[in-house]
Design a protein around this nucleic acid. Structure first.
Lengths: 228, 228
DNA sequence: CGTGCCGTTGAAGGTTCTCAACCGTGGTGG
DNA sequence: CCACCACGGTTGAGAACCTTCAACGGCACG
């Protein structure tokens, strides 16, 4: 994808104004395109917070705790806008699960220029609130849930975001590895694997190869996830 | 505090426009004042997301996981604006740590009306990003940290928000109980108590009564917190 | 002065982690 | 074409950390 179509995709996905608008021109001036391979890291200048638009592929937002421990804070897919802080207790990086492309904006500049268009500004606010609410639900899971509940939650949540809608059964092609799932749920790969086996034995899911999961009964899974 | 002074405090704390502005009048029309005692719950209509402004006191945002387990997602103090979702996997409630007062706004209406003033809109966006970043750091702690690291993190974070600035030593008057701390860090009260004892024995902190903590060496605590 | 809640400490138990071995798959090079 | 290797995933056994259960102490409040 060349820069032009990247930026057009951005304007289509983060909706509410046409490419000719004044705000679009201003944003165009500060956009930095990127393209990363599976496992690659989105280049951040490291001096200021950034907003990253994911145009294609799938990414993970990683926080580094001390001692080499990693925590995946969120997964982001095509169309998502990710806020990546620089000056925080933990260092963050946005990393490709598959080959991915998109745009990097300096956050401060971006927000300043988006003032021009209130409805665009509203979209940003809405999205950051959605991210906040997702992060809170994640925090609840990390703080108060067993391994089984976490994995069930994870699968149900993923089904809502990227699953086939014509279920049941619902088929899920996960772009992330067992390690990624573990790093996201605060568990080890071994525990993830054991919980997959347990759900398989319970007849709730089936796995094909490394990345495909079939969910037979989402409501049952939701029950095991400890959702209210 | 009567409604008028509540609303004036709101306009002062969530800055950028004077009480006479058009936006202020519009917001005035949808504000619902509340006053809760220690342990009381901010009344939410339950049909739509709300934004709560805390004018006085200290509050906790609680998520209910199934099985009676509670997870405190965030603490909020005077001057904070809290987004409380209604339709989520977990049910949320905003609860007083001490006698508290403030204003409740329907989120959708609030955001719609704040369009009028871009700089106000910017403040909202900035605040929700701050909340998101805090929530992420919390998620890292819940996912990847030991009990000692969590408590050290908690104390350092609290010191930044409500500690005396003239330290060291830094004195902390915590409005929350051991149970609250446990519910916030994903641990039991017993573990919290043991970790307090451990930090006391290490000479890093001193406790006076139930709510006062004195931090002798914040950098040392920060080290134990596993911050990068 | 009694009662109740909050906090502390101890001992036993459980869930998850760590360490280790094994298997299947996909890619590479002889 | 096949052997080999690297890597991701699975499974088992023991250890670590936190929880659970239980008892006790102290402060606040009626």
């Amino acid at each position: 994808m060349d820069y032009c179509s990247l930026f057009e995709t951005f304007l289509r996905d983060v909706p509410s104004f046409a490419p000719s608008d004044e705000a679009a021109i201003l944003l165009d001036a500060i956009a930095q395109p990127f393209r990363i391979a599976r496992g690659g890291v989105v280049p951040l200048d490291g001096s200021a917070d950034v907003l990253v638009y994911v145009a294609k592929g799938a990414t993970k937002l990683i926080a580094n705790a001390s001692g080499g421990r990693e925590q995946i804070v969120a997964f982001h897919f095509r169309g998502d806008l990710v806020s990546v802080p620089v000056d925080s207790w933990h260092s963050y990086a946005l990393c490709g699960l598959s080959e991915s492309e998109g745009l990097v904006f300096p956050a401060e500049e971006f927000l300043k220029r988006s003032d021009i268009d209130p409805s665009f500004h509203n979209v940003l606010l809405q999205r950051s609130l959605t991210a906040l609410h997702r992060c809170r639900d994640k925090a609840v899971g990390l703080g108060r849930k067993s391994a089984e509940e976490r994995l069930a939650s994870f699968l149900v949540g993923l089904a809502e975001r990227i699953g086939t809608r014509d279920g049941p059964p619902c088929t899920l092609d996960m772009p992330m590895s067992r390690r990624d799932i573990g790093d996201s749920l605060g568990l080890t790969i071994e525990t993830i694997s054991r919980q997959f086996s347990s759900l398989r034995n319970a007849g709730l899911i089936e796995t094909e190869g490394r990345s495909r999961v079939i969910l037979f009964d989402i409501s049952q899974l939701s029950l095991r996830a400890g959702h209210i």
